[in-house]
Design a protein around this nucleic acid. Structure first.
Length: 726
DNA sequence: CGCGTCGTGGTTTTT
DNA sequence: CCACGACGCG
């Protein structure tokens, strides 16, 4: 068989990585260096050239999107569907293992998954039940604590508070939370990983089976692994399996949620023979962009070291703009987008990246003003939407009457006259008798223990759920359709006025079609394996919904400018990129400035942002920013100064003047031929008095920006405005 | 039960 | 500044 085509499209280090026969390989893959390509080709190589069975391959990624992309690219290359190969996320694979071996994992067959929203609800309710003051200890901090410990592989019983009052409380809540989850057979995301790890630890025979099966283990984005994921991988790799890891220490930006870059270093210690391969040739960005990014990231200590280069062009220098304020900054970006489009480019090829979501607002306003369509990434995901979770809660309750959290969510959603009073009676009864809410409800109805009005409403609810439960044999989408209509959810949201109600109705309808798609998709992770055969469709679908938060939002719908945080830009690329808000305190954020570790992560985030750009990169900051209603005069971000001088120029509004960025940033020339200077107090006939904060252009078109005491900031054309200096 | 007011707090996000 | 959650009223 001619397999040369597998290697033809690869450069030397890529080829080396694909064909390496070392037992463990660590590929340090810089941004845009063809990381996914290497993973895909290695698998294809193994199957086609080495005759390795797909059955013995396990490929792990972090996101469903990455897993899906890898799978489809492999199948495309092999031109046959790959049976038996496991490609998935850590969570998806852990889930699959737990479903297949639920007894050994100490779980009931029908265990359910919960997302972080459900998790928070549980913590909140548990706090109420145990008289823990939510205003003193916000539920979120406990949630954070619990997940953090689970990511470290620690259960409450492994923790010791000593004399720390705070820690005692943390551990107490953690233990209570564990008990609740145990009782309701609920597993949160971190629990999946922890359980999967324990499953192997406590069942050596089972571990051996899987070690024997997965002779080839590949991991993507290794710098994002947390402690428990790494521990789980180590078990599976064992003494002799092939371990192929791809990552980039410079792109580790998730330390704050438990990812350990150190795992890359550990790898080299714990797998002494590991072959280190660097992919440094970049196929994405211009030479200038790469030099800027390289220069920046060199300021980080403890790097494995890597220098991106390109065989392509130098390209334009990076354009740095110091705006007078955040609105001027937005105006500048919009202007560049205008120019980009005027040159015949697509809006969707221009991305604006910011550190925090709050920054999108000014940009949106500016884009709206110019009628430029845009799209914001991130935010609510499909399966996180309230209306979707409501509908799914009905399914949960149908699938498992003992799911108190589903019960609580929908007992009065849509409103059907079951108030707090009634619910607290149910809750009290359930707590006292140690039974589920559902059973408590049945007893209360039986005993007619509540006022007749409430009783009537409650029996109607009971009958509703019971009659829905009878539909369980029907096709999934019909169950859903019946659920949203008979429950009254659809009607309820139809009555809700405005865009909101409309989109909720649409989402519910989309859920029905998602269910339809799910039925057709028999090659789902779960359905593929015989272990799941005895599980009802409903449970499988619910698990799917929990694990697949629905990044269908990611498909670009129409030609829109793309707005997103730097974090969500990871893994993406755009011909033209603007990074805004490059100011000390914002980026790097004030929380990070005095902690070297966190500062380094901010710098990596900046590196990630810069390396998204293919041709053009703009970086902006504002000298004056209104944030949270407060005024601030931030310093230019240190990251700006870390970018080498010769690859970046500072640009001024509406003028052709460009100059190298001065190392000690000086205020741009504030005087002009117009006779007005920034900082002067001026008076306008209509708007009253204000301070001049910016000016641009000259002659007849000269404009100034004035911050008026009464009406806020405005741009005025000098020749019309009739301003007087006061 | 739904709507209004007051008060508070406010990186980053996937599974 | 503004969004969201906790309360109180009709």
């Amino acid at each position: 068989m001619d397999i040369s085509h597998i290697l033809d499209q690869l450069n030397e280090p890529q080829r080396q990585a694909v064909t390496s026969e070392s037992n463990s390989v660590l590929v340090i893959a810089g941004a845009g260096s063809g990381k996914t390509r290497v993973l895909v080709h290695r698998i294809v190589w193994a199957v086609q050239m080495l005759g390795i069975s797909p059955y013995s391959i396990l490929a792990v990624t972090f996101t469903n999107k990455a897993a899906g992309e890898m799978r489809s690219r492999i199948e495309e290359k092999l031109s046959i569907p790959v049976k038996g190969m496991w490609v998935g996320t850590f969570h998806g694979i852990a889930h699959r293992l737990l479903r297949a071996h639920y007894q050994q994992a100490g779980l009931p067959r029908t265990f359910q998954l919960i997302d972080s929203d459900d998790q928070l609800r549980i913590v909140k309710r548990l706090m109420r039940d145990n008289q823990i003051d939510e205003s003193r200890w916000p539920a979120k901090t406990f949630q954070w604590y619990i997940n953090g410990k689970k990511d470290e592989g620690l259960r409450s019983k492994n923790l010791e508070a000593y004399n720390d009052k705070n820690e005692q409380q943390n551990i107490r809540v953690y233990a209570l939370y564990e008990a609740v989850c145990e009782q309701n057979s609920l597993l949160d995301f971190a629990e999946l990983l922890l359980r999967a790890h324990e499953l192997f630890l406590q069942n050596p025979d089972l571990l051996r089976i899987y070690q024997h099966r997965f002779r080839h283990i590949l991991v993507d984005e290794f710098q994002d692994t947390n402690s428990i994921q790494y521990a789980w991988l180590r078990l599976l790799v064992g003494e002799r399996n092939q371990f192929f890891v791809v990552g980039d220490d410079d792109q580790s930006i998730y330390g704050w949620r438990g990812a350990k870059v150190e795992n890359i270093q550990r790898l080299q210690v714990e797998y002494p023979g590991i072959e280190l391969i660097r992919l440094e040739q970049n196929y994405r960005s211009t030479g200038n962009i790469l030099r800027a990014a390289n220069g920046l990231i060199e300021n980080n200590a403890d790097r494995l070291g890597k220098n991106l280069w390109t065989a392509g062009e130098e390209g334009d220098p990076i354009k740095f703009y110091r705006a007078y304020n955040e609105r001027d900054e937005a105006r500048f970006v919009v202007e560049r987008i205008g120019a980009w489009v005027a040159e015949g480019n697509l809006r969707q090829d221009f991305a604006v990246l910011y550190r925090s979501n709050a920054q999108s607002r000014v940009l949106e306003e500016a884009l709206l003003m110019e009628n430029i369509p845009y799209r914001i990434y991130g935010g609510m995901r499909f399966f996180d939407r309230a209306e979707i979770k409501d509908a799914l809660a009905y399914l949960r309750l149908m699938s498992n009457n003992f799911d108190d959290y589903a019960f609580e969510r929908i007992v009065n959603t849509p409103p059907r006259g079951i108030g707090d009073k009634t619910v607290s009676v149910i809750r009290a009864n359930a707590l006292q008798e140690n039974i589920s809410y559902w059973s408590a409800m049945e007893i209360i109805i039986e005993a007619q223990a509540i006022p007749s009005r409430a009783l009537k409403a409650l029996s109607a609810f009971q009958q509703l759920v019971s009659s829905l439960t009878e539909l369980v044999e029907q096709p999934l989408h019909e169950i859903l359709e019946n659920t949203i209509t008979q429950s009254g959810l659809l009607e309820y949201f139809q009555k809700e006025k405005g865009e909101k109600g409309k989109s909720r109705v649409e989402n519910l309808q989309e859920l029905v079609s998602a269910a339809k798609q799910f039925e057709e998709l028999d090659e789902t992770d779960l359905a593929e394996d015989p272990e799941f055969e005895d599980l009802d469709t409903l449970s499988v679908f619910l698990a799917y919904c929990a694990l697949e938060s629905g990044d269908s939002q990611n498909d670009p719908h129409g030609d829109n400018v793309q707005l997103m945080t730097l974090h969500s830009a990871k893994g993406l690329e755009f011909p033209s990129v603007a990074i805004v808000g490059m100011e000390e305190g914002l980026f790097p954020g004030h929380q990070s400035i005095n902690e070297p570790g966190r500062l380094a992560e901010e710098r990596r985030l900046c590196y990630v942002g810069m390396t998204r750009a293919e041709q053009q990169l703009f970086i902006t900051c504002a000298e004056h920013r209104r944030l949270y209603g407060r005024e601030s005069y931030p310093q230019v971000s240190r990251f700006i100064r870390e970018i080498p001088n010769d690859v970046m120029v500072e640009v001024r509004p509406s003028s052709a003047i460009t100059q190298p960025v001065s190392v000690t940033p000086a205020r741009p020339d504030t005087s002009s031929s117009t006779g007005f200077n920034v900082g002067q107090m001026v008076k306008h006939d209509k708007f009253g008095e204000g301070i001049l904060v910016a000016h641009e252009g000259s002659g007849h078109h000269a404009r100034v920006q004035v911050n008026f005491n009464q009406v806020g900031t405005k741009w005025l054309v000098l020749s019309y405005a009739n301003l007087t200096i006061i």
